[in-house]
Design a protein around this nucleic acid. Structure first.
Lengths: 228, 228
DNA sequence: GAAGATTGTCACATAACTGTCGCGGCCTTC
DNA sequence: GAAGGCCGCGACAGTTATGTGACAATCTTC
């Protein structure tokens, strides 16, 4: 049975890309356009996870959160709250809304997906690949660790997401633009060449764990992870 | 000539991601916001494929479908219908709207792209497979790799495109001008003899992976890939 | 709030790729 | 069999794409 995810958000701020990724990882997805609809759907369709926009018409996200915890059919329903950067983000942490996790917009899809997996794993253990191994590289999403030939490798957040993405599609070539879209997020603007630098850093880090360069440069096309 | 795809849909239910993917796979894309506009554009711009939302303002998708089949300039215009889950989905199949394919929302972009390819392939064979094998040569577009008899072969960007093009039409002879137009692009001006040089380089590269020359020179006409 | 990490850009070096030439060989046509 | 067209290919100089160290701005962490 697929995990059932309810996304409640206004103004389609939550990107299509996110929905795409949710479906891609085999979640059933439903969307509620406002708070009222969300509450109804929570009752009727008993989702396994709630992605909740902070700002929501009619009934705010935080109010939904409270009601679910207080009176919901399933008071333990996992909730991930989406908040705009700065938008009371500090106060949020103080409030005891009962959300399981917060993500600040603009967020990287990869990162949010990781959190979704993490939250769902708590209630449905053994859900999805937490670990991927390609060649001699191993990545552990839960522990946020990477190793090569058993040796631990430290990566910065961006490098981690980059490698994570590569490892989900070994062998496939991605253009700089694609990587920016998915790894950085479609809403941020950074130079395409920045990808080069991060690939370089990732390479350097991976080098220390083993031998040859696992990332292939495809001139005038992009980069790919060697699919061993 | 790129396949020309007209997307008709309301409320941006069709994701940006889809548009992005369509363009990425080298389709020309146009968007119609309602049924009326769609009908106009179908007449004026003669698309090769129609992605049609079931629900559409002014003139419904199903009505458009019927009109195209009955009175359109091109009654065989391939049509893929997008329908919301459950939304009369059963009845649809019974109705003889004449769509070539149905996709139920929410749909996976990957899946839809596959169907788009499938439908277009029917009218335009050899369109864009991810992998092609001709004789002992194999080309993988996604991974951007070429191999002969299993052995990897490195090609420069232009050589790759050249081989790619040849492999889409094995056996067919192309003049230097044709190759310049399609492989280089109709907007650049380079000497015709340049093709010779690149064919030479391609030959040299392919030689290392196997035996005989897979490219046939047709004197005073052009080149062709041997269709084994 | 300070030390340490991380990030996005630049600038520059280097490697990879391109388009043209020109020479020489082969084929075709008389 | 000679002339001329057509083609293969090595050489080369000009471009373009990529790798990488440095740096300032931010963000984290304690």
């Amino acid at each position: 049975m697929k995990p059932y995810v309810l996304v409640a958000e206004d103004e389609s701020a939550v990107s299509e890309l996110l929905l795409y990724n949710l479906r891609r990882e085999d979640y059933e997805v439903a969307i509620a356009a406002d708070g009222e609809e969300a509450l109804m759907m929570i009752d009727e369709r008993a989702p396994d996870l709630l992605l909740l926009d902070w700002m929501l018409p009619k009934v705010s996200g935080i109010e939904i959160c409270r009601r679910v915890r207080a009176t919901g059919v399933n008071p333990n329903l996992p909730i991930i709250m989406l908040t705009a950067r700065g938008e009371e983000s500090d106060r949020i942490r103080g409030l005891d809304t009962g959300a399981d996790d917060y993500v600040t917009k603009p967020f990287s899809t990869t990162e949010l997906m990781a959190r979704v997996r993490a939250v769902l794993r708590r209630i449905r253990p053994g859900l999805k690949e937490d670990r991927i191994t390609v060649g001699d590289i191993e990545i552990d999403r839960v522990a946020h660790r990477v190793s090569r030939n058993g040796e631990d490798i430290h990566l910065g957040p961006t490098e981690f997401r980059l490698l994570d993405y590569f490892m989900q599609h070994p062998g496939r070539v991605f253009s700089r633009e694609q990587l920016l879209d998915t790894v950085w997020g479609s809403d941020v603007y950074v130079e395409a060449r920045t990808v080069d630098v991060h690939v370089g850093r990732l390479r350097k880090a991976l080098r220390q764990g083993g031998g040859d360069d696992p990332i292939r440069t495809v001139r005038s096309a992009g980069y790919a992870l060697r699919a061993d």
